[in-house]
Design a protein around this nucleic acid. Structure first.
Lengths: 202, 202
DNA sequence: AATGAAAGCGGACCACGGTCCGTTTCAGCC
DNA sequence: GGCTGAAACGGACCGTGGTCCGCTTTCATT
């Protein structure tokens, strides 16, 4: 009974106890190590030592340093996705599409700024994960559809998400000397042009 | 008297001969090493050896591996910027703003795809260089102005450039299975929504 | 030409990401 | 419980990015 009733599609060949124990130990060690400091303290050896395992184990679990960073991001991302799928409006369902879209942008902006260092450290492992960018793109695409926007929604969705990426945000807030509020206002302006509510442009 | 008559603003304290010789030798060595192969062959030690200098010299010149990559990109970027400033239309001056803007997108897209590996290897050193993103943003901003677009042009400009960034392009072309032409068409659609031309051009 | 000082050079050295393989631990089965 | 194969472990090992400091080169001045 410890297994799900429908393991037919289960691609995971059951994780061994020690492996599971070590995974959570490693994640906890990493989180604790990073408390207060930057990501640069997250040395693979340091994490391994803190968790009381060998260095090879860390690589076995997470594949690479980037993989470890991505795993650290997974928790928050999962929470965020849950908020989108079934959380309170306006981020979650129940609000009009445009409100949800704007809430999406604000929420995603916040998330990216909060986790900027980790996201950069995770590199492609995070950025190219379809479960991350793909989810956001799909969500925006659906909202655009609900708004009655016509055209290449797939492209427009990624185009709306692109300016929320960490490098762009740092460029705007760091070098461009914009405030977070100004960036958000700019994004909302962009959204209103892409998805005009008063009559639709072909 | 060997100094310029008005060195007041000169921030470059004159480069020594050997330094200049080594710089070009290193850049040539790097370019030659990369011929045909990927960026991963560009080891700092390999480049140094090929150029016949010590490893320390490479770091002195370029600061880091990312810095070396950025320097390798500089040539192409300078050519491209020259093309925008004074090259033939429609990328250069002379064409209507919308044509120039679309030419900008197509050209930038090409450039980014061509140099994708190098750009990624250069990391922040390239991506956060104001002379790169800043130039493109300023150009787009000016074109938007000429098109009569109102609003926060500074933000809209960066928002139009964001979806042309390498990570987004690879997401679309790699995972999203779009073609380069489809991406370009999508971008043009985005542009037309941000800069609607009331009853003009197709 | 001699000289002095500053800029440049080079390669030994260090830290960290990543690999490898002999050893240990787990879990399913008798 | 004892066996067995497979999965996981651990830490020695390697390559590469990056630093450091004593030595060399350049160049302006005399």
């Amino acid at each position: 009974m410890s297994q799900p009733l429908l393991p037919l599609l289960s691609t995971a060949p059951v994780e061994r106890r020690d492996a599971a124990r070590n995974r959570v130990a490693l994640l906890e060690a990493a989180a604790e190590l990073m408390g207060g400091c930057g990501v640069e303290v997250l040395t693979m050896e340091a994490v391994a030592a803190k968790a009381g395992v060998g260095k090879g184990t860390v690589f076995r679990r997470f594949g690479s340093r980037e993989g470890l960073m991505a795993s650290l991001l997974d928790h928050r991302e999962a929470e965020w996705q849950a908020g989108v799928i079934s959380g309170p409006a306006p981020l979650g369902p129940g609000a009009p599409p445009m409100e949800r879209l704007l809430a999406f942008g604000a929420s995603r902006l916040r998330l990216h700024l909060d986790q900027a260092a980790l996201i950069e450290a995770a590199g492609r492992t995070w950025g190219e994960n379809p479960a991350v960018l793909g989810f956001a793109a799909l969500h925006v695409r659906i909202l655009l559809g609900e708004l009655g926007v016509t055209g290449n929604l797939r492209y427009l969705a990624t185009a709306l998400i692109a300016p929320l990426s960490v490098p762009i945000l740092r460029q705007q807030i760091g070098h461009g000397s914009m405030t977070e509020a100004e960036v958000l206002a700019g994004w909302e302006e962009l959204v209103r042009r892409v998805a005009p509510q008063d009559g639709v442009i072909t």
